[in-house]
Simulated assay, not measured.
Amino acid sequence: MQCKAAVLESAPGPLVIGEIDVDSPAPDEILVRTVAAGVCHSDLHFMEGKYPYPLPVVLGHESAGVVEAVGDRVTGFAPGDHVITCLSVFCGRCDYCLSGRPQLCSKEGVLRPASAPPRLSRDGQPVHQFLFTSSFAEYMLVHQHGAVKIREDMPLDKAALIGCGVTTGAGAVINTAGVRPGETVAVVGCGGIGLSALQGAVIAGAGRVIAIDRVASKLDLARRFGATDVINAAEVDAVAAVRELTAGGVEHSFEAVGVASAAQQCFDMLRPGGTATIIGMIPVGEKVEIDGPSLLQEKRIQGSTMGSNRFRVDMPRYVDMYLAGKLDLDSMVSGTIGLEGINEAYDELKLGEVARQIVLFD
């Protein structure tokens, strides 16, 4: 099957719109017609060459769609099912999966063997699949353990946001950090993931939720998502401001920018016994430095991979929260585009003014 896709040919470089070939489903695979895909900052790291990836590759990883066909060993999916895809594809048999940490799965058997035809190709040559999804294409061919069936009354354009941003941001708060009712929280960066972390803190019952960004419009949006306080880091020292607001620091901080200096700020704004959770993708080679004596105050810094998710459980719950009015996805959408507008969308993302743009497919 041929379909239109956005291909990264060189890095740094733009995405090139063109035709690719998508193979038929293998026994454990499902073919999904892509309905919507979020424009996530993570892809930009690869476009800018800050993270390496084999080329050429179809980017995109935050998506929702409709099942078109299934392999003969697939269970739980049928043509017509509405699904969210997830890069946290799991094998179900490695130590991580069996110990309840499928987000760290070793991915045994979720890729096709080298002797098999590639899932994606062009002119007879393989095209790499990005993070097991490649959702900047009209069709996705994924392992059955890389998708979850959802309610059909869930709008698929909003469901796409759950595929990465919501699961990563809210999950970091609820799953990774385990924020408890009444605790103080600071979120550095109010893009799609940061705003999801803010909502996760509100859902968890945090007593005070402080939003930090350098763009005033994003701070206005953060208030809509439940921030009790906002700090414009372009105008004041964010660490000093947090310490002043909280009489010494927060119990939890979350870095949602992907910058080493922001991660260090998150650690510095903790009170004794606090935890800094790093969500953003800090570029390869950058280091985070912390003051050694601070560790004697039992301060902690930790990473979070896709919100420590168990997406087959978490994502349907986020869907229920949205439909019950407890999770605001509508306000996260800055605009919608067609696939042809993908490079312009990433140019806007670089400016830092937008939360989430969504690619809609016909």
Score class of each variant (00 low, 15 high):
L111N: 14
P113F: 06
P113Q: 12
A114P: 09
A116S: 15
A116H: 14
P118T: 10
S121K: 14
S121V: 12
Q125V: 06
Q125Y: 11
Q125P: 09
P126M: 06
P126D: 12
P126Q: 13
H128Q: 15
H128P: 04
F130E: 02
F130L: 02
F130K: 01
L131R: 05
L131V: 12
F132M: 01
F132P: 01
T133D: 10
T133K: 04
T133H: 00
S135F: 03
S135I: 10
S135C: 10
F136P: 00
A137V: 08
E138N: 09
E138W: 04
Y139P: 02
Y139F: 15
Y139M: 07
V142D: 01
H143D: 13
H143P: 02
H143N: 15
Q144H: 07
H145N: 15
H145W: 00
G146P: 03
G146I: 10
K149M: 03
K149Q: 08
R151D: 06
E152D: 15
E152P: 10
E152Y: 11
P155I: 00
L156C: 11
D157W: 01
K158D: 05
K158T: 04
A159K: 07
A160E: 05
A160D: 00
L161C: 02
C164Q: 09
G165V: 04
G165R: 11
V166E: 00
T167S: 14
G169Y: 11
G169K: 07
A172V: 00
A172G: 14
V173Q: 00
I174N: 01
I174S: 03
G178T: 08
V179P: 03
V179N: 05
P181F: 10
E183D: 14
T184H: 11
V187C: 01
G189V: 09
C190T: 08
C190I: 14
G192D: 01
G192C: 05
I193A: 05
I193N: 03
I193R: 01
S196C: 06
L198M: 15
Q199R: 10
A201N: 06
A201P: 06
I203P: 00
A204R: 10
G205I: 07
G207E: 12
V209Y: 09
V209W: 00
V209C: 13
I210M: 12
I210Y: 05
A211E: 06
A211M: 05
I212D: 05
I212Q: 05
D213Q: 14
D213R: 09
D213I: 07
V215M: 09
S217Y: 07
K218R: 15
K218Y: 07
L219F: 10
L219A: 13
D220N: 13
D220G: 02
L221R: 14
L221Q: 14
A222F: 02
A222M: 07
R223C: 08
R224I: 01
R224W: 00
F225T: 01
G226D: 06
G226V: 04
G226S: 11
A227T: 11
T228N: 11
I231M: 07
I231T: 08
V236N: 07
D237S: 08
D237V: 05
D237I: 06
